[in-house]
Nucleic acid binder design. Structure first.
Length: 225
DNA sequence: CCCCAGGCCGCGC
DNA sequence: GCGCGGCATGGG
């Protein structure tokens, strides 16, 4: 078992399955995780919700994104037709809580233009869409389209940079994970979610090394200095 | 008051 | 190709 497999095992043991990506549940009226179910989305509506969430979540807390998604939901606007026909300024006001709302309103419209173009949903085509970069594109491919692509984010970088005491760029980290893990979208989904959880709870900006499940492998661990 | 959050674009060099 | 400022709200 390689290092990355072992990290995964330890994080999963500590935090349990995360159930990403959270989806709105009409019955409870809330956004809910779905532990151990890697088959979602089940409908185009759910797929679209993940896409919108991924764009709104750029450099923004999930709580603020939820409010924006709820706003869209309440106006029956969490669908491409409604977003398409709504004036960009109006749209921006509805998603205001997600921050950068003027930009994000434009991003949503640009992405819907892409979906309507019927171009194939490939990584290269998605990266050509204005407003979505590597992380957003990979999140969409993995969580909305169930493609085995590993998502790298600021948390992944922070954790890995501390463990190996060196900085990695996006492509290097993505390649590292994808070459060393089983090519399985459920593992990629879970691993990314676990890294987020670990970074939020333990490997924070001010790290909490004594509680860290990976401390024995970490070159930055305070306890070793 | 500060800093941060599930980034990306446009620009200058 | 890399670094930097701008984008913006809500919570701690």
């Amino acid at each position: 078992m390689n290092k990355l497999d072992s990290f995964y095992k330890k994080l999963l043991k500590k935090y349990g399955p995360q159930g990403w990506w959270p989806l709105f549940n009409p019955k409870t009226g809330r956004f809910e995780y779905h532990k151990n179910d890697y088959s979602l989305p089940k409908t185009d509506a759910q797929r679209f919700e993940i896409i919108v969430g991924a764009i709104l979540a750029q450099n923004t807390s999930w709580k603020n994104v939820q409010k924006a998604l709820m706003g869209l939901k309440e106006k029956d606007m969490l669908n491409s037709e409604a977003i398409k026909k709504t004036d960009e300024k109006i749209l921006a006001s509805i998603i205001k809580s997600s921050g950068y709302h003027n930009q994000k309103a434009k991003k949503l419209k640009k992405f819907i233009e892409f979906l309507d173009s019927k171009k194939s949903v490939s990584r290269q085509n998605l990266l050509n869409v204005w407003g979505v970069g590597k992380e957003t594109v990979d999140s969409i491919l993995l969580y909305a389209f169930n493609q085995p692509i590993f998502v790298v984010d600021a948390y992944t970088r922070r954790i890995m940079s501390r463990i190996y005491k060196k900085d990695f760029d996006y492509d290097t980290l993505q390649e590292l994970f994808m070459k060393n893990l089983k090519q399985d979208q459920s593992i990629f989904k879970e691993y990314h979610a676990l890294l987020v959880e670990h970074a939020k709870r333990v490997c924070k900006k001010e790290s909490n090394c004594q509680e860290c499940s990976l401390k024995r492998d970490c070159k930055s661990c305070d306890l070793l200095e």
